[in-house]
Nucleic acid binder design. Structure first.
Length: 512
RNA sequence: GCCCCCAUAGUCUAGCGGCCCAGGACGUCACCCUUUCAAGGUGAAGAUCGCGGGUUCGAAUCCCGCUGGGGGUACCA
């Protein structure tokens, strides 16, 4: 950290609004905050704390259940917090709607010091002002109509019970320098800053007031937030100064852009953490991908576990330029974790909910390694894990190993490209005869026997194997034939070959 | 319009004045492996380091301008 290596504890916070599902951009901001406090700071021998604060100051945008959804998805993601809305802490409460008196007091204090003022302008007047400014091609903004209202007028309005907001009295001259840990100094002319609303007419604070009051009260040392906050950062700094407080260090995280440009939205695909979970992405793969979208160790290493990130993450190596979300690369990470990183037992357990959802196994098996269905699933997962891109692919790939009855055959797929219905039928009938004498558990012996059968029939091995594959799995693509037969078992293989013979016989007649 | 941020291949990035006529990864293509599809292996194409000026013996790296992209401009966060 560019801040002096003092012993001051590193206290950071992630402060989402419970207005819907957590966005991947928010997930990454949470991750970087958590890595700074629990990783980098602790490695430097400092105390590090990560807090989760709920910013529910806009009553109109609240979504029922959204707050719990945020807790759940962060836990799933692999992030834990030291203090927060659900678990309390030394600066409780951590939900802004429960801290209203603090904001009111802070705003009143600013008024008493002449640093803020009451504004009685109605929304209608503000809209009108904005309209006129637009018509005259002037920059839009509050015209500071109430900035210097006579004390008598204010008192009268107050006595009349007129609704009002409290606005910050932003200095009209000079400049404000915002030092960003990633970008260095950014200079803003105070004339360009507005007299932002601090306290709304409903008594709730705006983000600007609440975040400053809370970050100070909660002893936040570093603010890591999205780049969209850069424009108001100078006002926040002026607010700290008005209160006589030291401001935390600031670092604005780069934006995550959509593939076509612009901000990532539904139009381009999934944007919520929750969607990636339900689509079968592993939290460790998503974390790895998101960490690398903005941060890098050396440009060479790509695979980082949660623990690796705690050991290696440094804020300095976050790249300030915006990045484009790449669904294909995320998928690659997911596939790689499924196939090469997590264990077979682990993968088996994770695939269960998706199989249960497809009705292929007993839902009671979820989370229960001793359930008999787990033993049925595991060997199939062992064969198929190299072609699962997401856990949600499991039903499609594992289905033929788990169900008793295959869906009806597409008979065209049973017949090899260069084969005929008659030859295929004869081949499968030969297979049906041979199958009972073959020990499928001995893959090498089974393969030798079926290769010999191909010779006897006078066909290439591939032209015998493909009909068997389709008969037994219902699919033209599968793992190696003999491991597939072994796992599906002699009984079911026999039944399916018979079914295929029947299907082929009927359709062969029809076609002939 | 005004304010601000950013700028290395389609994408994520390494690079912080000479080691770079630019390295890694995804994606793409080819070949190998092979009973199919994957996985895996090998290799290839792809960047005049956005453009133009400087500074310097020397610039992807420093400075300025331009252009492009993005963000902000609410009693939303």
């Amino acid at each position: 950290m560019s801040a002096p290596a003092s012993s001051r504890p590193v206290r950071v916070r992630f402060a989402p609004s419970p207005t819907g599902l957590l966005h991947v951009g928010g997930g990454r901001t949470a991750l970087f905050n958590w890595l700074l406090a629990h990783g980098q700071a602790k490695r430097m021998g400092q105390e590090g704390a990560f807090l989760l604060r709920i910013e529910d100051t806009d009553q109109s945008r609240l979504v029922a259940g959204a707050e719990q959804g945020i807790f759940d998805i962060l836990h799933w993601f692999g992030i834990d917090w030291d203090e927060g809305a659900d678990k309390g802490g030394p600066h409780a409460p951590y939900r802004q709607s429960e801290r209203l008196p603090m904001y009111r007091d802070a705003a009143e204090r600013l008024i008493a010091d002449g640093k803020a003022y009451r504004c009685f302008c109605t929304p209608e007047r503000l809209a009108q002002v904005r309209e006129q400014q637009q018509a005259r091609k002037e920059p839009p903004g509050y015209d500071r109509h109430c900035r210097d209202l006579p004390a008598g007028t204010v008192a009268a309005n107050l006595a009349a019970g007129m609704p009002h907001v409290i606005r910050f009295r932003m200095p009209r001259e000079g400049e404000t320098v915002v030092t960003d840990l990633l970008r260095g100094d950014m200079v803003f002319q105070n004339v360009n800053m507005e007299d932002l609303v601090l306290l709304k007419s409903d008594g709730f604070p705006t983000y600007h007031l609440a975040n400053v009051v809370d970050d100070h009260d909660m002893e936040i040392s570093h603010i890591l937030r999205g780049e969209e906050w850069i424009p108001t950062a100078p006002v926040h700094l002026r607010l700290y100064a008005a209160f006589g407080w030291d401001a935390p260090a600031l670092a604005h995280m780069p934006l995550i852009l959509a593939p076509g440009g612009g901000k990532l939205s539904k139009r381009h695909g999934s944007t919520a953490m929750e969607e990636f979970r339900s689509q079968g992405y592993l939290p460790e793969a998503l974390m790895n991908y998101l960490a690398l979208l903005g941060w890098s160790l050396d440009g060479e290493r790509e695979i980082f576990s949660r623990e690796d990130l705690l050991d290696l993450f440094t804020l300095e190596r976050v790249n300030p330029s915006p990045g484009t979300f790449d669904y294909a690369k995320l998928k690659w990470f997911n596939q790689y974790y499924i196939n090469h990183i997590i264990s077979l037992d682990d993968l088996t357990m994770r695939v269960l909910p998706f199989l249960a959802n497809a009705g292929m196994i007993d839902a009671a098996a979820i989370g229960n390694p001793d359930h008999p269905d787990v033993a049925r699933v595991r060997p199939a997962v062992a064969l198929l894990k190299d072609r699962l891109e997401t856990l949600a692919d499991a039903p499609e790939h594992l289905g033929c190993f788990l169900v008793d009855q295959l869906p009806p055959y597409d008979t065209a797929t049973l017949i090899p490209k260069k084969g005929t219905a008659e030859d295929t039928l004869a081949a499968l009938q030969a297979v049906a005869r041979v199958l009972p004498e073959v020990d499928l558990d001995d893959e090498a012996a089974a393969e030798a026997r079926f290769r010999a059968l191909a010779d006897e029939l006078g066909v290439k091995a591939g032209n015998l194997f493909m009909p068997i594959r389709v008969a037994v799995t219902g699919r033209t693509q599968s793992p190696g034939l003999f491991e597939t037969l072994r796992v599906i078992g002699t009984a079911r293989c026999g039944e399916r070959v018979q079914q295929a013979i029947l299907a082929l016989g009927e359709n062969g007649m029809a076609a002939g």
